[in-house]
């Protein structure tokens, strides 16, 4: 049985989904059901007493693994504070570290992310850091106790697909932890390709939330991720042929 194990929890589905940007939170239960996902992200915000809103937690089916993120954090200290708050809320000890100090492109800050991961992993959190696909950053995250690494396929919310493919490939090859492609995935075929390459899972939000029919798109992504995983496990056939008789390099061995 092919399972993804993170922080001691076995997951059947390799699709992680977000809860942001839906036209109505009431869509979430059906999206979860159709996607098959078992891990769902949420964010933590100050309550705005002037414009009360509904509670996203009311729409998340029980049994889901919650993955609070630290969005809004601009440095390690803020991320650590948010993580501790999320844990205090009694939603388990998983945390997606997201430190963004760049408001123009929304790219993650590797140095601050490593610092936050080290502290939180030391406190017993299951830390899933969101990063640019930088090998050296990923290696340091392994060193400081991350449970997985989550490199971006393209900038957040851009729906541009696997623009960082070559770098993702290197991370998948070199990092022993699960590599979860987070951000940028626009189409089910992008998610499928990431899984074929050997990604452990995909995390996506915008691509489902912004579809005309989110439930249907969620189902499509669930299937694409499962298909890509199966293809990876099956072992892709060779893409190049190396036999050449014109100038054999090993002919001398037969003499």
């Amino acid at each position: 049985m092919d399972q993804l194990v993170i922080g001691g929890r076995s997951l059947q589905s390799r699709l992680f989904i977000g809860t942001g940007k839906y036209s109505a939170d009431t869509l979430i239960p059906e999206v979860v059901k159709k996607s098959g996902s078992e891990v769902i992200t949420v964010a933590l915000r100050r309550i705005d007493f002037n414009s009360p809103t509904g509670n996203v937690m009311d729409h998340i089916p029980s049994g889901m693994q919650l993955l609070p993120n630290t969005s809004g954090a601009r440095n390690a200290q803020e991320a650590i504070r948010i993580a501790r708050l999320a844990k205090a809320a009694g939603c388990g000890n998983w945390i997606k570290i997201e430190v963004i100090s760049d408001n123009k492109y929304l790219l993650p800050d590797g140095y601050e992310t490593i610092k936050a991961t080290e502290v939180l992993a030391g406190e017993g959190f299951v830390v899933l850091p969101y990063i640019s696909p930088d090998l050296m950053v990923a290696k340091q995250l392994v060193e400081v106790g991350a449970a997985a690494v989550m490199p971006l396929g393209a900038p957040i919310g851009s729906n541009r697909g696997l623009k960082t493919k070559e770098l993702l490939r290197i991370l998948i090859e070199e990092i022993a932890l699960p590599v979860i492609v987070d951000a940028g995935i626009g189409k089910p075929s992008d998610a499928c390709e990431a899984m074929e390459m050997g990604a452990a899972a995909c995390l996506l939000n915008t691509a489902i939330a912004s579809a005309n029919q989110p439930e249907l798109m969620a189902e499509a992504f669930g299937m694409a991720v499962a298909a890509g995983r199966k293809a990876y496990l099956a072992g892709l056939g060779r893409s190049e042929k190396y036999a050449s008789s014109s100038s054999p390099l090993t002919g001398f061995l037969h003499n």
């Binding site: 939170d25 100050r46 969005s71 809320a89 919310g157 939000n205």
Partner: peptide, 10 residues
């Protein structure tokens, strides 16, 4: 006092 709650996020 800081009072927070979970909201939708990715």
């Amino acid at each position: 006092l800081e009072v927070l709650k979970f909201v939708g996020g990715g």
